[in-house]
């Protein structure tokens, strides 16, 4: 029977990946509800589990593709590879309406640009201070500090190594999880109690899972306002990071 399992998983690797990820998502959402009362977003937990599995796979096989190097799970490489990932990311733009950004007003738009920019600069400064010197590496890690999507998309288009891309995902994930934890704690202090500041908060922080979970823990009525601007954040990051911001980094180093 073991042989049969191995054969089927190997032959139908993409299908096996769907099943494995489906189970991971289910468990992550269960943990989120059961143990954190939804404070830590299920998708953030799932990505954390994904990174942990990649670490296990890497240690087990000594390969460079995380869990995808384990024959049983080779389909993960196809499912999480650049082709399907970019297709799904582009699909998230569907339903975005530019009228929504008008409601957020000029300050909302300023918040969006400022948010992408300061996150990128923060990531770049940290990367440089840790001794990264290539423009591609610095840009990829900096883009990861924008969101855990902007990082890998930027890294893939610029040709960064898987190691640097993993770092950029981790940076975005840290930002998202810390946002979930610190938003309710600092809400009073930063004036996060009205739609206007919620929209600006969404534009500045931008990582949608972090913004939504953080605002939900603060005051659920603020969630749609923060989400309204945050929806544009990743798109703006994907547009700016591999282009203008990469060129700026390349000119500086």
């Amino acid at each position: 029977m073991n042989d049969s399992i191995m054969t089927v998983f190997d032959k139908y690797h993409l299908i096996a990946a769907f099943a494995v990820i489906g189970l991971t998502m289910f468990l992550a959402h269960w943990v989120s509800k059961r143990f954190t009362r939804g404070r830590l977003h299920g998708s953030a937990i799932a990505i954390l589990v994904g990174l942990a599995l990649a670490w296990v796979g890497g240690v087990m096989t000594g390969g460079k593709h995380g869990l995808a190097d384990v024959t049983l799970f080779s389909g993960l490489g196809l499912m999480g590879g650049g082709m399907l990932r970019d297709l799904a990311i582009i699909a998230t733009a569907y339903g975005v309406r530019f009228q929504e950004i008008k409601q957020a007003g000029v300050r909302g738009v300023i918040a969006l640009f400022a948010g992408v920019l300061i996150s990128f600069v923060a990531g770049a400064v940290v990367a440089v201070s840790f001794g990264y010197t290539s423009a591609v590496d610095i840009t990829t890690i900096a883009a990861g500090a924008v969101t855990y999507i902007v990082g890998p998309v930027t890294g893939a288009t610029l040709g960064a190594s898987s190691e640097v891309i993993a770092l950029s995902i981790a940076a975005g994930l840290v930002k998202s999880i810390l946002t979930m934890i610190f938003t309710p704690l600092t809400a009073k202090w930063i004036g996060l109690d009205n739609p206007r500041s919620a929209m600006i908060f969404g534009g500045l922080i931008g990582t949608t899972s972090g913004v939504a979970a953080g605002l939900a823990a603060t005051d659920a009525r603020l969630v749609p306002y923060g989400a309204m601007t945050a929806t544009f954040y990743t798109g703006l990051g994907i547009l700016l990071a591999p282009t203008v911001l990469f060129l700026a980094v390349r000119a500086l180093v």
Binding site: M25, A54, G66, L76
Partner: peptide, 10 residues
């Protein structure tokens, strides 16, 4: 889910 798969194969 695709992002989770991507994370798992880094």
């Amino acid at each position: 889910p695709i992002v989770v798969a991507m994370a798992a194969s880094q």
